[in-house]
């Protein structure tokens, strides 16, 4: 206490003793209010974090699964069926499935030698042997 007293005396000169007495009296109302405001701000920041979390989760939910009813449309093209392409998932009815731009008069029998799917890049590679159907 002596050193503190000396310090206050050094800083504030002759008024040090009265200031030290005031300082040792505990918290005053302003300090208490400031502390409570900081505490309230901290709690509100948690509420804000939760709000952000809720909004982001809802956004992810809506973008990745926007509806509760889906119309599953199988591949109509024989090649696509044989290559194991996924069905089209539509959120509204009446849409035709995607068909590759293949058109010819000759029907082919396809022998699937190997099939490699890369799900991450949504790609598929197939080795096929085609024989014309009479």
């Amino acid at each position: 206490m002596k050193s503190i007293h000396k310090k206050y005396n050094h800083i504030e000169g002759t008024h040090g003793r009265s200031n030290l007495k005031q300082y040792s009296g505990g918290f005053n109302m302003i300090e208490l209010q400031v502390a409570l405001v900081i505490l309230a701000a901290g709690l509100l920041s948690f509420a804000g974090l939760y709000r952000i979390y809720t909004v982001q989760t809802t956004y992810i939910e809506q973008t990745s699964m926007p509806a509760s009813t889906y119309y599953v449309v199988s591949q109509s093209n024989r090649w696509m069926r044989q290559l194991g392409s996924s069905a089209e998932m539509e959120v509204s009815p009446g849409q035709s499935p995607w068909a590759p731009a293949v058109s010819c008069c000759t029907e082919y029998k396809i022998r699937l030698n190997s099939l490699t799917k890369n799900f991450e890049e949504i790609q598929a590679a197939a080795d096929v042997t085609m024989e014309a159907v009479e």
Binding site: M65, Y70, V72, S74, Q75, M80, R81, Q82, G84, S85, S86, A87, E88, M89
Partner: peptide, 10 residues
């Protein structure tokens, strides 16, 4: 959903 779609494709 993706598994069902894969099977429903063909």
């Amino acid at each position: 959903m993706e598994n069902l779609a894969a099977d429903f494709g063909s």
